[in-house]
Every structure is written in C-alpha cells, then in structure tokens.
Amino acid sequence: MTTSPLVSTQWLEDNLKTPDVVVVDGSLFLPQMGRDAEAEYLEAHIPGAVRFDIEDISDPKSDLPHTLPEPHLFASKMRKLGIGDGQTIVVYDGIGLWSAPRVWWMFKVMGVKDVHVLNGGMPKWKAEGRPLEDGPVRRPERHFTARLNRGAVTSFDSLRKIIASGDRQIVDARSSERFSGSVPEPRPGMRSGHMPGAKNVPVMDLMRDDGSLKDETTLRAQFSEAGVDISKPVTTTCGSGVTAAALTLALTSLGATDLTLYDGSWSEWGSRQDTEVVAGS
C-alpha cells in the first residue's frame, strides 16, 4: 500500500472488493452551502462506504464545534461503524478535499497508520462515471484500538506559547477575506481577523477544478508565496478545525513532518475576549 496520504479514484475502484479496505464518507458542509451531507450520502455514495458524521464523532463535553473526542469514545464509534484494527481506510467527501482530510487526520492522531484520502473525492468519482449505490451501509462491528497522539493536537494554551515564542509557523486555511477580517465570521459572536504572525493559504486554493489536490510544484509555490517554510514546524488552523486538516494533508504530501493542528481554531480564538486579533492581510 502507498505511503502517500492520497489514493486515486482508479486505485479505489480496483480495490472496492478487497478485504479490509473500508471506504468512509466524511462529508461535512457549512450551513451557507445549503447542502445536507446525510441526505446526499443516502442518495448516492461509493459502494460499501460508511457514513462518518464529524458532528456526531466529536467531544460531547466541548462548547466548540466538532472537536476531537477522547480515544475511548472514538474507538466506540468506530467499532459501531465496523471500522477496526488492520484495515486500510479511504476517506472521501462531497467537495473533494474539504472535510475528508479532517477524518483522515482524526484517524492518524488516533494511531491508524493505513488511512488515506480519495484524491478528488465524490466530484471526481462522479465525473468519471464510477459506480455508486444508495441507502445506508451496515458493517459488522470490529475492534478498534485508539492511541491518541496528543502531541499532534495544539491546545489554546499551547497556541499562545507558539505565538509568544515564534517557534512554529501558524497557517490558516480560511478564505483571504475572513483571514484579513474584511468580512464577518459566519458564526455569531466572533471577531474578524487572524492570529498574530499567522500566514494564509486558503483551502480552496489547494484544489483543482475536479476537487483533487494540485501538483507538488504548484503547492510548493503557494506555500512559499504565503511565507511558509515547509521544512520548519507548522501548526494549522481554520474556522473550526476541519479544513485546517486539508493544509496538514497538503503539507504531508510535500514531505513535511513536524505538523500539529489547533483543534479549537478560530471558533475558540475569535470568540474569546482575551486574545489578540489582527486585521488586514
């Protein structure tokens, strides 16, 4: 199996019936997108795909949206989905590289080695006329061992130290307008702008028109133009911790290894009154 974080649509179609290859629909849409991830899954999904609901598989004790659950809860949810140890997991979403990387990242920080994102997701799969099915999918329960790598998850206090020390780069996946503070945040009660010292690489700029990840040369140029040195430590962030993982995936594809993700992201930082917020690019 490839060590790349991505697999192609052709690879997945060739391996749909391979034992222990599990396909996961990890779609999550913003309210303003006007899309229903559950309804779209039931109407059409890749054959055999189970539905990974990021909203449901999150920390029920947190006031922040879809934060990482504790390992025992994650393991319980995966067992009920029929996802377990020793499997090859392939995640996709309905935009391409939007929320699937978040699911990929969740599996990675829970200790799963063999997990990948379908390059291009459902848009590319559909455009190529590949097989689909409808209705729910039930898999037999399977034991899942969760070993949380807490070092890959940046907390609020850790981010404050990062900003104070400057020992890690902060890269924000939100749109340039949200990053600069020229438009209001979609969630009420949040200030507009970004964290001190943060760089901006919008998640939508990572994708081609078909939803797949841009080529290595283009990605390297984009990060460089944003002032990001991929050979140095990076902490990714976004609005609520979802699309930050797309930056993590893109950086991983370029060979970056010292990566963490700020799970609270702007939902936490921008809603507090004791944080510094910078406006402008």
Rank of each mutant, 00 (worst) to 15 (best):
P196W: 12
T237H: 03
K232P: 01
L68V: 15
G129T: 12
A198P: 03
A152W: 14
V137P: 00
D215H: 13
W269S: 02
K232M: 08
G120D: 04
D93V: 04
G166I: 02
S176I: 08
L73P: 01
P131E: 05
R51H: 15
S271H: 10
S4G: 06
E38H: 14
L213S: 04
L16S: 03
M1E: 04
I170S: 05
D209M: 13
G135S: 13
A250G: 03
P65Y: 13
D25M: 07
R35A: 13
A279C: 10
R102F: 06
R150F: 00
E216I: 02
S176F: 06
M33E: 15
M110D: 08
V50W: 03
D85P: 05
R187P: 09
E276C: 01
E13A: 14
T18M: 08
L97W: 02
T252D: 04
V277T: 10
L28R: 05
T252F: 00
P140Y: 08
V242E: 06
S231E: 13
T275Y: 07
G280P: 10
D172L: 06
V23C: 02
M78Q: 04
G193Q: 00
L16H: 06
D63E: 15
R147Y: 02
N200S: 12
I83G: 00
N15K: 08
M106N: 10
A44T: 02
L219V: 06
F52I: 14
K80D: 15
W104Y: 10
W11L: 12
